[in-house]
Design a binder for these strands. Sequence first.
DNA 1: GCATGATCATGC
DNA 2: GCATGATCATGC
Length: 496
Amino acid sequence: MIPYNDSNPRDIERYAKGLIGKTFQDVLYESRFLEEAITDSKIDYSNPNQKGKLGNLLEEKYFCYKANSDQEPDFPKCGVELKVTCYDILKNGNLSAGERLVLTMISYEDPVEPNFYKSHVWEKCRLILLIYYERNKLLKYNTLYRIGFVNLFSPFEKDMPIILDDYNKIIDKIRMGHADELSESDTMYLGACTKGATSAGSMRPQYYNSEVLANKRAFCFKRQYMDFILHTYVIPSHTGKMPVQLETIIDNPMRLKIMSFESIVLNKLDCFRGWSDLELCRYFGRDYNNNKAQWTDLTYRMLGIRGNHAEEFVKANIVVKVVRIENDLSMNESISLPPFNFIEFANETWEESQVYNYFSETKFFFVVFARDKSVYRLYKYFFWNMPFEDLNRIARIGWENIHYLIRNCKVEFWLKETKAGYIVKNNLPKKKDNPIIHIRPHAQESAYLIHMHDGSLYEYGIIWKDANMLPQGDWMTTQSFWINNNYFLKNILGFK
DNA sequence: GCATGATCATGC
DNA sequence: GCATGATCATGC
């Protein structure tokens, strides 16, 4: 007899909670005393570092059923799906969902199911036994990871309109024969993530009429949505603490049955179109001080949010970016991304890179103000995510050119004298070398500890604060990727 | 006028 | 004190 009632979800959860505090190694060891544990498995659990086998280990050695990749639920008698996923502990001690939750592959062999509630995705997510382990990258083996939380989980009712909308967006693209243009950032909570490499070898023909091969993809709950579940449901259920409530843009979820989330947001800003920053500050009672957060603040005020966080944006990983353009419709500045670490960058492949992941998972809410004499007026606002082709072909080449020099220790430096002193020049690709992205310094001040062209050593600034080390051993001012301003004007705003 | 390298400002 | 978002300043 297996040690739980597999027809009763609550009893499965009760038994599963026995995993809390155990490592996968513990489970494997204790299974020797568990008569029903699967012993004739085809899977070899002796290698402590096999990625992706942690779920199988629990299935066979704790829940006592054979791991398979059938379309059937893991607990068929009651339709419960087992999902094993991870969280990280951040430097500040906070927990953060480590991965998106992959639900099921998107089939390119079969027609799509138009009704979400009859779809395979719904079967796979309507009732999940969610097992969260701590991914501690300092540990040598995956099997030493420890399980922290166990919960039965169903998607929140208030999120369903958005999940349905996401599903429809994805299947619409597939039915149009545009599966090759899918991107995880197309949607809010339910995403279409790539499975396997994005290189030519793993491309597949589409079901609907298109000659173009498409990447293998799967339906998933996006990482930020999992993060929200972790903080508002999983952790509170274990600690008894009330979750921190974020302000919502849409207070009544019923509205989402009539209008899409995006249209509601755009409608809210329509009321203020043409207003100047000065008028908006007066209207919302904010000091008009031209400081940098001003236009972002005003954007949240227009959405009815008092702070600078909105629940829907956080869950869907939507980033508000305010852009100001000048009288001549030019734009002074490019748009910065977070700084990066050279060594981590050098060791990444494209698919696992921060740049690829940032753009494939992030949706932007661009709010454009246009100069009118001494003020800026609300001009345009729209959601945008980078088209897959731009990202995976054009931006990728720019990334690879920079990656090549840094990874292969071919970065060169020389000094140039200016009125204000010396500046350090380098041979890394510049903005003009790629249509979409470039890198620039991004620190408090510049800092270098470098070997010059002639072999001499040059030191400047506060190395540990403003610089980080290249694979070649030199320290260069910390850099970040930037979205070229001309790409924004031409391809995102649509100017000539 | 723009590209590139350098630096500022704010919130947590 | 750092992460993040944003702008400045010089030289061609």
